[in-house]
Simulated scan of single mutants.
Amino acid sequence: MSNNNVITFSDVLDAKEKISPYVHECPVVTSSTMDKMVGRKVFFKAESFQKTGSFKARGALNAVLSLVSKSPEVHGVVTHSSGNHGQALAWASKMVGLDCTVVVTKNTPKSKCEAIKAYGVDLVFCEPTYADRIKTCNKISEERSIPYISSSDDYDIMAGQGTIAVEFLNQVPNLDAVIVPVSGGGMAAGIATAAKAIKPAIKVFIVEPEGKMCEMCLKTGKRLWPETPQFLDTIADGLIVQQLGKRTWPIILDLVEKDVFTVNNKEIIKAMKFVFERMKLVIEPAAGAGVAAVMSKRMASMDPGLKNVGVILCGGNVDINRLPWY
Protein backbone atom coordinates (compact mmCIF):
# COMPACT_ATOMS: atom_id res chain seq x y z
CA MET A 1 0.00 0.00 0.00
CA SER A 2 1.25 3.50 -0.79
CA ASN A 3 2.83 5.18 2.20
CA ASN A 4 2.13 8.76 1.10
CA ASN A 5 -1.41 8.77 2.53
CA VAL A 6 -3.23 8.28 -0.75
CA ILE A 7 -4.17 5.28 -2.80
CA THR A 8 -2.84 4.85 -6.31
CA PHE A 9 -4.16 2.99 -9.33
CA SER A 10 -1.46 0.35 -8.79
CA ASP A 11 -2.88 -0.26 -5.28
CA VAL A 12 -6.26 -0.94 -6.92
CA LEU A 13 -4.69 -3.31 -9.47
CA ASP A 14 -2.84 -5.13 -6.65
CA ALA A 15 -6.14 -5.48 -4.79
CA LYS A 16 -7.80 -6.85 -7.94
CA GLU A 17 -5.12 -9.51 -8.28
CA LYS A 18 -5.51 -10.51 -4.61
CA ILE A 19 -9.30 -10.65 -4.41
CA SER A 20 -10.31 -11.80 -7.92
CA PRO A 21 -10.13 -15.53 -7.14
CA TYR A 22 -12.69 -15.09 -4.33
CA VAL A 23 -15.18 -12.40 -5.40
CA HIS A 24 -17.69 -12.22 -8.24
CA GLU A 25 -17.33 -10.08 -11.33
CA CYS A 26 -20.79 -8.58 -11.03
CA PRO A 27 -22.97 -8.13 -14.10
CA VAL A 28 -24.03 -4.86 -15.70
CA VAL A 29 -27.79 -4.54 -16.18
CA THR A 30 -29.70 -2.10 -18.39
CA SER A 31 -33.34 -0.98 -18.71
CA SER A 32 -34.72 0.50 -21.93
CA THR A 33 -37.59 1.97 -19.88
CA MET A 34 -35.08 3.83 -17.70
CA ASP A 35 -33.09 5.00 -20.73
CA LYS A 36 -36.25 6.49 -22.29
CA MET A 37 -37.27 8.06 -18.99
CA VAL A 38 -33.95 9.87 -18.43
CA GLY A 39 -32.87 10.40 -22.04
CA ARG A 40 -29.48 8.73 -21.52
CA LYS A 41 -28.08 5.21 -21.60
CA VAL A 42 -27.87 3.97 -18.00
CA PHE A 43 -25.72 1.02 -16.96
CA PHE A 44 -26.28 -0.52 -13.53
CA LYS A 45 -23.35 -2.36 -11.94
CA ALA A 46 -25.15 -4.97 -9.83
CA GLU A 47 -22.91 -5.29 -6.76
CA SER A 48 -26.06 -6.63 -5.08
CA PHE A 49 -24.90 -9.98 -6.55
CA GLN A 50 -21.53 -9.73 -4.81
CA LYS A 51 -20.45 -12.13 -2.05
CA THR A 52 -22.35 -11.23 1.17
CA GLY A 53 -24.81 -9.19 -0.93
CA SER A 54 -22.84 -5.95 -1.29
CA PHE A 55 -19.69 -4.34 -2.71
CA LYS A 56 -18.20 -4.36 0.81
CA ALA A 57 -16.80 -7.87 0.30
CA ARG A 58 -14.14 -6.43 -2.04
CA GLY A 59 -12.62 -3.98 0.42
CA ALA A 60 -12.97 -6.27 3.45
CA LEU A 61 -11.17 -9.13 1.73
CA ASN A 62 -8.37 -6.87 0.48
CA ALA A 63 -7.97 -5.46 3.99
CA VAL A 64 -7.70 -8.85 5.74
CA LEU A 65 -5.41 -10.32 3.07
CA SER A 66 -3.12 -7.27 3.40
CA LEU A 67 -3.27 -7.51 7.19
CA VAL A 68 -2.26 -11.18 7.42
CA SER A 69 0.56 -10.70 4.93
CA LYS A 70 1.96 -7.77 6.97
CA SER A 71 1.18 -9.18 10.46
CA PRO A 72 1.09 -12.99 10.33
CA GLU A 73 0.71 -13.13 14.14
CA VAL A 74 -2.68 -11.36 14.05
CA HIS A 75 -5.50 -13.54 15.44
CA GLY A 76 -8.63 -11.42 14.96
CA VAL A 77 -10.21 -8.15 13.85
CA VAL A 78 -12.96 -5.87 15.11
CA THR A 79 -15.23 -3.38 13.37
CA HIS A 80 -18.49 -1.51 13.78
CA SER A 81 -21.11 -1.60 11.06
CA SER A 82 -24.72 -0.91 10.14
CA GLY A 83 -24.73 -4.33 8.46
CA ASN A 84 -22.96 -4.76 5.13
CA HIS A 85 -19.37 -4.15 6.23
CA GLY A 86 -19.98 -6.39 9.25
CA GLN A 87 -21.12 -9.24 7.01
CA ALA A 88 -18.28 -8.66 4.57
CA LEU A 89 -15.57 -8.55 7.23
CA ALA A 90 -17.04 -11.63 8.89
CA TRP A 91 -16.92 -13.50 5.56
CA ALA A 92 -13.41 -12.27 4.72
CA SER A 93 -12.09 -13.14 8.20
CA LYS A 94 -13.45 -16.66 7.88
CA MET A 95 -11.68 -17.02 4.53
CA VAL A 96 -8.29 -16.39 6.18
CA GLY A 97 -9.01 -18.03 9.56
CA LEU A 98 -9.27 -14.90 11.72
CA ASP A 99 -11.71 -14.32 14.58
CA CYS A 100 -14.06 -11.41 13.94
CA THR A 101 -16.01 -9.18 16.31
CA VAL A 102 -18.67 -6.82 14.96
CA VAL A 103 -20.18 -3.99 16.99
CA VAL A 104 -23.72 -3.02 15.97
CA THR A 105 -26.22 -0.63 17.51
CA LYS A 106 -29.19 -2.09 19.38
CA ASN A 107 -31.59 -0.89 16.68
CA THR A 108 -29.82 -2.64 13.77
CA PRO A 109 -32.37 -4.62 11.72
CA LYS A 110 -32.70 -8.18 12.98
CA SER A 111 -32.16 -9.56 9.46
CA LYS A 112 -28.75 -7.87 9.26
CA CYS A 113 -27.74 -9.09 12.73
CA GLU A 114 -28.69 -12.66 11.84
CA ALA A 115 -26.81 -12.46 8.56
CA ILE A 116 -23.65 -11.27 10.35
CA LYS A 117 -24.01 -13.94 13.07
CA ALA A 118 -24.35 -16.66 10.41
CA TYR A 119 -20.64 -16.20 9.64
CA GLY A 120 -19.77 -17.26 13.18
CA VAL A 121 -18.72 -13.87 14.54
CA ASP A 122 -18.96 -12.35 18.00
CA LEU A 123 -21.75 -9.77 17.72
CA VAL A 124 -21.62 -6.98 20.33
CA PHE A 125 -24.49 -4.51 20.77
CA CYS A 126 -24.05 -0.85 21.75
CA GLU A 127 -26.20 2.27 22.18
CA PRO A 128 -27.62 3.69 18.91
CA THR A 129 -25.11 6.51 18.46
CA TYR A 130 -22.07 6.77 16.22
CA ALA A 131 -19.88 7.80 19.17
CA ASP A 132 -20.88 4.68 21.10
CA ARG A 133 -20.04 2.43 18.14
CA ILE A 134 -16.53 3.92 18.05
CA LYS A 135 -16.07 3.75 21.84
CA THR A 136 -17.18 0.11 22.06
CA CYS A 137 -14.98 -0.84 19.12
CA ASN A 138 -11.89 0.85 20.57
CA LYS A 139 -12.44 -0.86 23.93
CA ILE A 140 -12.66 -4.33 22.32
CA SER A 141 -9.63 -3.62 20.12
CA GLU A 142 -7.58 -2.73 23.20
CA GLU A 143 -8.83 -5.54 25.46
CA ARG A 144 -8.40 -8.29 22.87
CA SER A 145 -5.31 -6.86 21.12
CA ILE A 146 -7.01 -7.02 17.73
CA PRO A 147 -6.88 -4.32 15.04
CA TYR A 148 -9.90 -2.25 14.09
CA ILE A 149 -10.80 -2.29 10.39
CA SER A 150 -12.83 0.72 9.30
CA SER A 151 -15.73 0.21 6.91
CA SER A 152 -14.39 2.97 4.65
CA ASP A 153 -11.58 5.10 6.10
CA ASP A 154 -8.81 2.63 5.34
CA TYR A 155 -6.56 2.60 2.26
CA ASP A 156 -6.78 -1.18 1.76
CA ILE A 157 -10.58 -0.96 1.93
CA MET A 158 -10.59 1.87 -0.64
CA ALA A 159 -8.28 -0.03 -3.00
CA GLY A 160 -10.57 -3.06 -2.81
CA GLN A 161 -13.63 -0.97 -3.62
CA GLY A 162 -11.75 0.63 -6.52
CA THR A 163 -11.77 -2.75 -8.29
CA ILE A 164 -15.45 -2.04 -9.10
CA ALA A 165 -14.34 0.74 -11.49
CA VAL A 166 -11.72 -1.47 -13.19
CA GLU A 167 -14.39 -4.07 -13.91
CA PHE A 168 -17.08 -1.56 -14.85
CA LEU A 169 -14.92 0.28 -17.40
CA ASN A 170 -13.82 -3.03 -18.85
CA GLN A 171 -17.50 -4.00 -19.27
CA VAL A 172 -18.66 -0.55 -20.50
CA PRO A 173 -15.60 1.38 -21.79
CA ASN A 174 -17.67 4.32 -23.09
CA LEU A 175 -19.03 5.45 -19.70
CA ASP A 176 -19.08 9.25 -19.42
CA ALA A 177 -20.04 9.37 -15.73
CA VAL A 178 -20.45 7.13 -12.71
CA ILE A 179 -22.87 7.73 -9.83
CA VAL A 180 -21.71 6.36 -6.47
CA PRO A 181 -23.77 6.30 -3.24
CA VAL A 182 -21.66 7.66 -0.38
CA SER A 183 -21.46 7.02 3.36
CA GLY A 184 -17.91 7.22 4.77
CA GLY A 185 -16.60 7.48 1.21
CA GLY A 186 -14.47 4.34 0.78
CA MET A 187 -16.22 3.24 -2.40
CA ALA A 188 -16.29 6.77 -3.88
CA ALA A 189 -12.57 7.31 -3.15
CA GLY A 190 -11.60 3.93 -4.61
CA ILE A 191 -13.80 4.22 -7.69
CA ALA A 192 -12.69 7.80 -8.39
CA THR A 193 -9.01 6.82 -8.09
CA ALA A 194 -9.34 3.93 -10.54
CA ALA A 195 -11.83 5.49 -12.97
CA LYS A 196 -9.83 8.70 -13.37
CA ALA A 197 -6.62 6.71 -13.94
CA ILE A 198 -8.28 4.63 -16.68
CA LYS A 199 -10.30 7.45 -18.25
CA PRO A 200 -9.28 10.95 -17.04
CA ALA A 201 -12.32 12.67 -18.62
CA ILE A 202 -14.89 10.51 -16.79
CA LYS A 203 -16.98 12.30 -14.17
CA VAL A 204 -17.59 10.67 -10.80
CA PHE A 205 -20.64 11.97 -8.91
CA ILE A 206 -21.62 11.05 -5.38
CA VAL A 207 -25.18 10.68 -4.12
CA GLU A 208 -26.12 11.24 -0.49
CA PRO A 209 -29.22 11.20 1.73
CA GLU A 210 -30.60 14.54 2.95
CA GLY A 211 -28.61 16.14 5.75
CA LYS A 212 -25.15 14.91 4.70
CA MET A 213 -23.90 18.33 3.50
CA CYS A 214 -21.35 16.96 1.00
CA GLU A 215 -21.96 19.58 -1.68
CA MET A 216 -21.39 22.46 0.74
CA CYS A 217 -18.20 20.80 2.02
CA LEU A 218 -16.88 20.02 -1.48
CA LYS A 219 -17.65 23.49 -2.86
CA THR A 220 -15.95 25.27 0.05
CA GLY A 221 -13.18 22.67 0.30
CA LYS A 222 -13.80 22.44 4.05
CA ARG A 223 -15.11 19.79 6.45
CA LEU A 224 -18.19 21.64 7.71
CA TRP A 225 -19.78 18.72 9.56
CA PRO A 226 -20.52 19.01 13.29
CA GLU A 227 -17.53 17.59 15.13
CA THR A 228 -19.39 14.87 16.99
CA PRO A 229 -20.14 12.41 14.17
CA GLN A 230 -23.90 12.03 13.64
CA PHE A 231 -26.25 9.45 12.16
CA LEU A 232 -28.63 10.73 9.49
CA ASP A 233 -32.38 10.20 9.56
CA THR A 234 -32.68 8.07 6.42
CA ILE A 235 -34.15 4.74 5.33
CA ALA A 236 -30.78 4.06 3.64
CA ASP A 237 -29.08 2.50 6.68
CA GLY A 238 -26.01 1.82 4.54
CA LEU A 239 -25.59 5.61 4.12
CA ILE A 240 -26.40 6.58 7.69
CA VAL A 241 -23.07 8.20 8.61
CA GLN A 242 -23.05 11.98 8.10
CA GLN A 243 -19.33 12.66 7.68
CA LEU A 244 -16.93 11.50 5.01
CA GLY A 245 -13.85 9.85 6.54
CA LYS A 246 -10.67 11.80 7.34
CA ARG A 247 -8.75 9.70 4.79
CA THR A 248 -11.44 9.46 2.12
CA TRP A 249 -12.20 13.21 2.24
CA PRO A 250 -9.05 14.57 0.50
CA ILE A 251 -9.31 11.95 -2.27
CA ILE A 252 -12.99 12.74 -2.87
CA LEU A 253 -12.31 16.49 -2.73
CA ASP A 254 -9.59 16.06 -5.37
CA LEU A 255 -11.31 13.67 -7.80
CA VAL A 256 -15.10 13.79 -7.43
CA GLU A 257 -17.45 16.37 -8.99
CA LYS A 258 -18.48 19.19 -6.68
CA ASP A 259 -22.15 18.85 -7.76
CA VAL A 260 -23.69 16.27 -5.43
CA PHE A 261 -27.00 14.44 -5.83
CA THR A 262 -29.06 14.67 -2.63
CA VAL A 263 -32.07 12.35 -2.38
CA ASN A 264 -34.84 11.92 0.16
CA ASN A 265 -36.65 8.82 1.44
CA LYS A 266 -39.57 9.27 -0.94
CA GLU A 267 -37.24 9.38 -3.96
CA ILE A 268 -35.30 6.35 -2.73
CA ILE A 269 -38.52 4.33 -2.35
CA LYS A 270 -39.70 5.33 -5.83
CA ALA A 271 -36.35 4.23 -7.28
CA MET A 272 -36.33 0.93 -5.36
CA LYS A 273 -39.84 0.14 -6.57
CA PHE A 274 -38.78 0.79 -10.16
CA VAL A 275 -35.84 -1.64 -9.83
CA PHE A 276 -37.94 -4.30 -8.08
CA GLU A 277 -40.85 -4.06 -10.54
CA ARG A 278 -39.21 -3.28 -13.88
CA MET A 279 -35.69 -4.70 -13.55
CA LYS A 280 -36.58 -7.67 -11.30
CA LEU A 281 -33.65 -6.98 -8.94
CA VAL A 282 -33.65 -6.86 -5.14
CA ILE A 283 -31.75 -3.78 -3.97
CA GLU A 284 -31.40 -2.06 -0.62
CA PRO A 285 -32.18 1.63 -0.01
CA ALA A 286 -28.50 2.68 -0.35
CA ALA A 287 -28.54 1.31 -3.90
CA GLY A 288 -31.93 2.97 -4.43
CA ALA A 289 -30.23 6.30 -3.72
CA GLY A 290 -28.05 5.88 -6.81
CA VAL A 291 -31.07 5.04 -8.95
CA ALA A 292 -32.97 8.02 -7.49
CA ALA A 293 -30.08 10.29 -8.53
CA VAL A 294 -30.25 9.21 -12.16
CA MET A 295 -34.05 9.70 -12.13
CA SER A 296 -33.75 13.19 -10.58
CA LYS A 297 -34.43 16.65 -12.03
CA ARG A 298 -30.80 17.48 -11.40
CA MET A 299 -29.68 14.69 -13.74
CA ALA A 300 -32.18 15.90 -16.36
CA SER A 301 -30.55 19.36 -16.28
CA MET A 302 -26.99 18.06 -16.60
CA ASP A 303 -24.74 18.23 -19.67
CA PRO A 304 -26.42 16.20 -22.46
CA GLY A 305 -22.88 15.12 -23.42
CA LEU A 306 -23.02 12.69 -20.48
CA LYS A 307 -24.70 10.08 -22.67
CA ASN A 308 -23.58 6.89 -20.92
CA VAL A 309 -24.08 6.93 -17.17
CA GLY A 310 -23.07 4.17 -14.77
CA VAL A 311 -24.82 3.61 -11.44
CA ILE A 312 -23.44 1.40 -8.68
CA LEU A 313 -26.19 -0.81 -7.22
CA CYS A 314 -24.10 -1.16 -4.08
CA GLY A 315 -26.07 -3.87 -2.26
CA GLY A 316 -29.17 -6.00 -1.97
CA ASN A 317 -29.36 -6.63 1.77
CA VAL A 318 -32.89 -5.51 2.55
CA ASP A 319 -35.29 -7.11 5.02
CA ILE A 320 -37.99 -8.39 2.65
CA ASN A 321 -40.42 -8.62 5.57
CA ARG A 322 -39.98 -4.91 6.25
CA LEU A 323 -39.69 -3.20 2.89
CA PRO A 324 -39.60 0.59 3.35
CA TRP A 325 -42.86 1.23 1.50
CA TYR A 326 -44.90 -1.00 3.84
Rank of each mutant, 00 (worst) to 15 (best):
K16A: 12
N265M: 05
G310K: 09
L61T: 05
N308A: 12
L306G: 04
T108W: 06
R40Y: 09
I268F: 04
I191A: 01
I164T: 05
K307D: 13
C214Y: 15
E267V: 02
G53E: 08
T234K: 01
K222R: 11
M213D: 14
S93Q: 03
E267W: 00
D35S: 05
V78S: 06
V166F: 05
S152V: 09
C217Q: 00
V77I: 15
C217V: 02
I149L: 08
L123I: 02
L281W: 00
K270C: 13
G315T: 09
T79L: 03
L175D: 03
K139V: 05
D99M: 14
K266D: 12
S183E: 08
A292Q: 07
A131E: 08
E167L: 10
Q243I: 14
P226W: 04
V68E: 03
E227D: 12
D176H: 02
T108E: 03
E142R: 10
T108V: 12
N84V: 06
R40G: 13
I198R: 02
P21I: 13
W225L: 06
C126P: 00
A197C: 13
R298V: 11
A192W: 07
V241R: 00
M279I: 11
I146T: 02
K297F: 05
S69M: 13
V180Q: 01
P229A: 00
I206V: 15
E127Y: 08
S54F: 00
R144D: 03
F49C: 11
H85M: 09
L253N: 15
L123Q: 04
K94P: 01
G315R: 08
I179K: 00
N308G: 12
V38H: 11
A57C: 02
P229N: 02
K18I: 04
P109Y: 12
T30Q: 09
D237Y: 09
L98H: 01
S81D: 15
V256N: 14
G76I: 02
L224V: 13
M187D: 04
E227M: 12
N317S: 05
M213V: 14
D132R: 07
T33H: 07
A195D: 14
L61N: 00
I134T: 08
S183T: 08
M216N: 13
I191L: 06
V29T: 11
A192V: 11
C217Y: 04
T105I: 10
